[in-house]
Computed example of a mutant assay.
Amino acid sequence: MNAHSGHAGHDHDHGHHDEDEGGHGTLKGYVTGFVLAAILTAIPFWLVMDKVFPSSRTTALVILAFAAVQIVVHIVYFLHLDARSESGWNMLALIFTLVLVVITLSGSIWIMYHLNSNMMPVSTHDMRNMP
């Protein structure tokens, strides 16, 4: 009995899966992801530099939208996560992580906002009128 007889039926084609089968991406996929990421970076830069929108709030919301799209591009083209990879467990873990990050960030911002508005130091005018 040789050393490889215990691996009967084992796939010896390590790391040579097609992109559709959950393997590593192709050069075309990486270049596509890079081009999309560069475009999704250049457009918000242009929006800010040329002051396309009169309101800074509108500019910030558009930049956040571009950032969300860029996150999706990175996840699909560079991390190769989709609903099919590992029976969807990777995507489920990613969604769970995103929910926790949103809860943590929104909770932190909420707490800091309320601390700022409720715990502001007393102004000098109010200090002079204190007994």
Rank of each mutant, 00 (worst) to 15 (best):
P54N: 03
M112D: 08
Y30F: 02
D82I: 08
A65N: 12
A83M: 11
P44H: 02
I95G: 04
V35Y: 01
L79E: 13
L27C: 09
Q70P: 06
M127P: 05
N2Q: 13
T41L: 03
E86A: 14
F66S: 02
G33W: 02
V52M: 02
W89I: 15
H80A: 10
Y30M: 01
P121E: 10
F78Q: 01
D126H: 11
A38K: 07
P44D: 02
I75Q: 09
W89C: 13
D50R: 14
I109C: 12
S85Y: 15
W89H: 11
K28N: 07
A8W: 15
V73I: 03
P121H: 10
H125P: 08
H14W: 03
A37W: 07
S85C: 15
G22E: 03
H74N: 14
H17D: 09
V122D: 05
G23W: 00
K28V: 06
H24N: 12
G107P: 04
M49V: 09
G22C: 04
L27G: 11
N2C: 12
L47M: 05
S117H: 14
L47E: 04
S56F: 08
N129D: 10
G25P: 02
T59P: 02
H74I: 13
D126L: 05
A3I: 09
H74S: 09
L100G: 13
V48D: 00
A93I: 14
P121A: 11
A3H: 09
Y113G: 07
M112V: 12
G6H: 13
S87N: 00
A67M: 08
P44R: 03
H12P: 08
G25H: 04
R84T: 08
V52L: 10
L94T: 11
G9E: 01
S117W: 11
D11H: 03
M120I: 12
V52C: 03
P131S: 01
P44I: 04
I43Q: 08
I71K: 11
H17A: 12
T59Y: 01
S5Y: 13
D50V: 12
L36G: 04
A42H: 05
N118F: 10
G9V: 02
